[in-house]
Design a protein around this nucleic acid. Sequence first.
DNA 1: AGTACCACCTGACGGC
DNA 2: TGCCGTCAGGTGGTAC
Length: 266
Amino acid sequence: MPELPDVEYFRIYLDATSLHKTIDTVDVRAPRILEEVTEAQLRSVLAGRSFQSTRRHGKYVCVEIDAGAEKWLVMHFGMTGRLAYFKDIGDDPKHGRLLIGFENGYFLAFVNQRKFGHIAVAGSPEAFAEAKGLGPDALSIGREDFVARLGKRRGSAKTTLMNQKVLAGIGNIYADEILFQTGVHPKTPVNALDEDMRERLHSVMEDVLHTAIAVMRRHEDFPESFLIPQRHEGGVCPLDGTPLETLELSGRKAYFCPEHQSHEGT
DNA sequence: AGTACCACCTGACGGC
DNA sequence: TGCCGTCAGGTGGTAC
């Protein structure tokens, strides 16, 4: 699930549930999700502290632990995941991999069925993004920077949009949506797109991400003009009902409209 | 630089 | 009902 809009929703959810509450307990149920931090270290970083604020960079949620302490909890959800805030420990969600207990008796769970997610501790969101080599966040990057970062890349439009080192936050679903709305075929090499088309990609990307955040990732709530509700076997182009086609790019499935997404991207 | 392929995990779903 | 292959919105490493 989690691409930028989903992760933004998790961030807002954490803000609404878990700020400014003293942390009592830290229960790591799947140690393999911890990245370069031990369970004991995580516990000592969190116990007795409280979450102060949140940030998001691409698909990562960063949570500030105490003000000005230069300690941030960083979460990535992999392909499956969410946060769950609940009161009774008997109601703990299935696949809760990290449970943080607060003094008010409530818990925040990092839910991650496939364990592809990660939990890390960093000095700051910027330091973490730098260490990971992440590009700028897809919702923060300006038009000129976006156009410049696409540069003269020869890779396909889709894999480039999904490359977290180019820009952070776009995954398989939203890459398909952005390319559909700009009329660009997923395999079009980036260096075949003229400047106008790159600028359009940027503005469509912003619109798509903002819309997705607004509908809180419920596919059925997307506008009918979007590809996403049709992104399944038998789906058709929302413009004129042309059956969608699929292709594989590095093992990821791309859905696209053969009528409205030309190779040239013009 | 770009792409393909595998690995990491778990569960849902369709076919037989 | 049960088994099996396939697929799922991510990322990192390797090999070419």
